[in-house]
Design a protein around this nucleic acid. Structure first.
Lengths: 187, 187
DNA sequence: ATAAATAACAAACAAAGCGTTCAATAACGT
DNA sequence: ACGTTATTGAACGCTTTGTTTGTTATTTAT
């Protein structure tokens, strides 16, 4: 890929994320993104069709990284199959989030976080679902597998949002403990 | 309140909800709402400052009703204090939703449901919080009350979304059972 | 190193949407 | 029936959008 393209693409992403820290997604204009990224108008439209397109691309780039690294760690650790393993997939995810190599936390903290949650939830749901299949657990419950998967990934996302709203006072390890406390009893 | 005002206000709300069934909130124009509601342009702006204002007002009207009726039922039934009570606050809420007197389900089912979730979650969180205080339960857990409240209301909302996505195949009673199964073990 | 290909640019454009104003008309409450 | 108040429709300036054009700068391939 052309070095010029990489630079402008990154500049647009960064400008977009920076603006999202200050104002709502709906109220951000393409012109503002252009100015913040310091590029030409036509350049923006050469890269993205619309603002919504930019949003989608950004989400794909960030969340896929997050989930990929989680899947990698799951190969060595598993979901919660071994009760004594201190580092679960979720714990890894939390640590990864806190280190914030990518800007996922910024997006989940911003005013328009709901928009990003859809993408994050979808990725996470897929992760949990595959992990569930991998560890053929005893299905003695009266609960549909479907419901359970949704409950787990949903609870995880809700915890992260709660964590962010409370200004991230807890460590990833603490959060992992909380999460185990509400999830393991029902597995 | 003037009969004319009531009618146009209702017409705008209905038009707005109808449009939300077809397209994203962001892509709905004020002109479309005006046409759908069959009113004059200046009339719309006499009622609402902006499209966002309309959104806010609609949420306040719908969700406050939902929550109010839930609070009423909580006075007679309680949260989950008495384990043998078949009709919990949540069950009432679910029944109320399914009957869909108001259009809450339509909004939570639409493409821009995330926008409405913020309001719904806030209302629900408040409900759970007050109910928790009312039934001074044993706090022998290592979990912060704060976290627990968020987990419960968050899980409830996630369940409703899961229910909607799956085309509402379960009855409110079934959902209530599912919910109890994942919540009561940690209380 | 040079040439061909490609990306960035600035400026200008029509089209669409926004929010406001105003005089005329219709519906309302009492 | 009366005065009051909401609705109407047309017009307005303004902002934003997405496209187009010719030119300049950078990269890639030879």
């Amino acid at each position: 890929m052309d070095r010029r393209q990489q630079k402008t693409r990154a500049a647009i992403f960064n400008a977009f994320i920076a603006l999202l820290g200050n104002k709502n997604y709906n109220n951000i204009t393409v012109q503002e993104i252009i100015d913040e990224a310091n590029i030409g108008r036509s350049t923006f439209y050469a890269h993205f069709e619309t603002k919504d397109d930019l949003l989608k691309e950004l989400c794909m780039e960030l969340f896929s990284h997050i989930i990929d690294s989680a899947i990698d760690s799951s190969h060595t650790h598993g979901l919660y199959s071994d009760n004594s393993v201190p580092n679960s997939v979720f714990c890894h995810l939390l640590q990864h989030l806190e280190e914030n190599h990518n800007n996922v936390l910024a997006l989940l903290s911003c005013e328009s976080s709901e928009i990003f949650l859809r993408y994050f939830k979808d990725s996470l749901n897929e992760l949990v679902r595959t992990q569930f299949v991998n560890q053929n657990r005893k299905n003695n419950q009266s609960l549909p597998n479907d419901f359970l998967v949704n409950h787990i990934s949903g609870s995880f996302v809700e915890m992260i949002l709660w964590w962010i709203r409370g200004h991230r006072k807890q460590s990833p390890t603490e959060l992992d403990q909380y999460f185990r406390a509400v999830i393991e009893p029902i597995l």
